[in-house]
Design a binder for these strands. Structure first.
Ligand code: FES
Ligand code: FES
Lengths: 143, 143
DNA sequence: TCTTAAATATGATAATTATCATATTCTTAT
DNA sequence: ATAAGAATATGATAATTATCATATTTAAGA
């Protein structure tokens, strides 16, 4: 469904959502280990997310990655789009072009409503929402 | 969501569902062109599907690929599993291990119900069902 | 201002997936 | 039997994705 990169990015961002803050910046190596993702790999992804202002960072001594209040308000979908682009989630299952209501492929009626719902949910849920669920013990992060 | 291989395989199988029969075998080249997939690529996929008895084939003069009545009764999901394996559809979105109700990842509550529904639908719908929909003009094949 | 510790930019390598090519085997009809 | 037309088996190449590595830039503190 998603690429490995998106999965890793989501894990990292959610980890930051739970553990970081403007006063609690976290370095790559302290993110990589608990979420169980290769350090160099997650570093690259974090840099990209930072460049796209999905997450925040400062360099140098005492630097690291973190989420601002504003970052926390973002929908989960932002992370996905930032890494994979929008195409993957929205393209038709059978043709490789965009999904078309007027000339639906044979799987459209099965797949499209669910995809719409999924995207809607990922747009509604913010990083903060998920962070709260994790902290309430309704879901688990490291796995 | 699915790999390119699965998409191609589905297109080919549905093409066969609509156009072939025990008395109407179709050769690779006559499948590849209308579904707009490279011949050598789809050939390999068709061979694999044939080996797994998702579709039928005979070689030699007058040979080709086709679907028997029994083939037509199969759920769409069979095609997907035959090419991609079962893992891809069933694994957790965030960890790379299997999805777990008792220790759900932060996206589980959003994603899991929809995935279950999707799998259910793909299990219920047979190739014949989709073929009929195409023939009724409810959906379109080549795209 | 200089040293140090961090992210950033850039790119190299490995693994997987997608694509292409061809010699072999089987089936039908001559 | 044998010639021809098809799938089959096998493997090679290309493109994309995943992974790793490192030199450069920036910020903080001595
Ligand atoms: S047209 Fe194929 S999924 Fe919508
Ligand atoms: S535990 Fe992650 S999707 Fe179910």
């Amino acid at each position: 469904m998603f690429t490995n990169s998106v999965k890793y990015a989501l894990k990292a961002v959610l980890f930051l959502a739970v553990h970081s803050g403007e006063e609690r910046k976290i370095m790559v190596k302290d993110i990589a280990e608990p979420i169980n993702v290769p350090k160099a790999y997650i570093a690259k992804l974090l840099q990209e997310l930072s460049k796209q202002e999905i997450i925040s960072s400062t360099r140098g001594v005492k630097g690291g990655f973190y989420l601002t209040e504003s970052n926390l308000k973002q929908p989960v979908l932002n992370v996905i789009y930032a890494i994979d682009g929008t195409y993957r989630m929205n393209s038709c299952l059978l043709s490789l072009e965009s999904c078309n209501e007027y000339k639906p492929c044979p799987l459209h009626h099965i797949v499209s409503p669910m995809r719409s719902k999924l995207i809607e949910s990922l747009k509604e849920k913010t990083l903060e929402d998920l962070s709260i669920e994790i902290q309430s013990g309704l879901s688990y992060l490291p796995l």
